[in-house]
């Protein structure tokens, strides 16, 4: 219990991942759904960094750098879409984003 093993970090990561998934499924505000996705990415990063430390291998940290870069790209484009959508429909409720379905 007192010794911190990679298992602890994995459990923390799994729990944070779950919180993110719950956010994505339960909330209806697109912006908060995006933030939940950031939480999920962070959960993955915790795992990568913990295992990188455990295995004494830098590959994990390199992966985290790439994940952060991709998250930045995702946030920029995703929020751009939200703004474009909000301009047309005056809402950010994901249930009302259904103009493909009539």
């Amino acid at each position: 219990m007192l010794e911190i093993t990679p298992l602890h970090y994995s459990l923390l990561s799994a729990a944070l991942f779950m919180i993110g998934v719950i956010g994505v499924l339960v909330r209806r505000n697109v912006i908060i759904i995006f933030m939940s996705i950031e939480l999920i990415l962070n959960a993955v990063n915790i795992n990568l960094v913990a295992l990188s430390d455990q295995l004494q291998d830098l590959a994990g940290q390199v992966f985290v750098v790439f994940v952060i870069a991709v998250a930045a790209a995702e946030a920029a484009v995703g929020l751009g879409i939200i703004i474009a959508f909000y301009r047309n429909k005056e809402t950010v409720n994901i249930d009302e984003i259904q103009i493909m379905r009539w």
Binding site: Y9, I31, F34, M35, E38, N42, N45, V49, A50, S52, D53, Q61, V64, V65, I68, A69, A71, A72, A75, A76, L79, I82, I83, Y86, V92
Partner: peptide
């Protein structure tokens, strides 16, 4: 976890960049 560089990048890019973007959008809408 001995990952100082990743930690700093996390603060710089996530906390200082991406989340500011979120805040902007929240205020904009």
């Amino acid at each position: 976890l001995n990952a100082e560089f990743v930690a700093v990048i996390q603060v710089l890019v996530y906390a200082g960049g991406i989340v500011v973007l979120y805040l902007f959008v929240v205020m904009l809408v």
